[in-house]
């Protein structure tokens, strides 16, 4: 009978240790890379939050007013919300005067309104991180409609 190089016990132990090692490593990987918003680059995540916040305000607004780097969304029932880009930050001031910084690290930015399309405004931002992507999108005031 032909004899082998290793005993079967050694093989089984080797298999067991290998499997155990791979399993532990996989579990570590799974916990360490648990899919979450942290996996999304910070800038994109910040932009997404910004879009959600402004979109929520624009949905219930009816009027837009712009002056330099300040944009005001008015709603007859709930008062006005003001966005301001100054000092590298974008702030949101609600109808009771609470000021909240909604985006940080802006090199340049501004709002834009349209003569022909009254209920639309655009926001553009250039981040202070020179490698970061700029931001440009628009929002329609919906007067509470979808």
């Amino acid at each position: 009978m032909k004899k082998g190089f290793f005993s079967i016990e050694s093989l089984l132990i080797f298999m067991f240790v290998t499997m155990l090692g791979i399993t532990v490593y996989s579990v570590y990987q799974f916990i360490g890379t648990n899919p979450s918003s942290e996996d999304i680059p910070d800038l994109i995540s910040a932009y997404q939050n910004l879009v959600e916040k402004i979109n929520a305000d624009a949905r219930f607004s009816g009027e837009i007013a712009m002056q330099d780097n300040t944009l005001t969304l008015s709603n007859a029932g709930k008062g006005a919300i003001t966005y301001n880009i100054t000092g590298g930050n974008m702030t949101r001031t609600d109808s009771v005067g609470d000021i909240q910084i909604i985006f940080k690290g802006i090199q340049m930015g501004g709002f834009s309104i349209y003569e022909k399309t009254k209920g639309l405004f655009s926001l553009w931002l250039i981040p202070s991180d020179t490698l970061g992507m700029p931001f440009f999108t628009s929002f329609a005031v919906r007067k509470g409609k979808r």
């Binding site: 680059p41 800038l43 994109i44 932009y47 879009v51 399309t117 009254k118 209920g119 639309l120 655009s122 992507m133 931001f135 440009f136 999108t137 628009s138 929002f139 329609a140 005031v141 919906r142 007067k143 409609k145």
Partner: peptide, 22 residues
Amino acid sequence: EMEFMASLLARHVIEKVVAGKV
């Protein structure tokens, strides 16, 4: 980033259409 920017631009067009309709 390219995909995200594309979605922002598509959003600009949709919002423009919505505002035009309003």
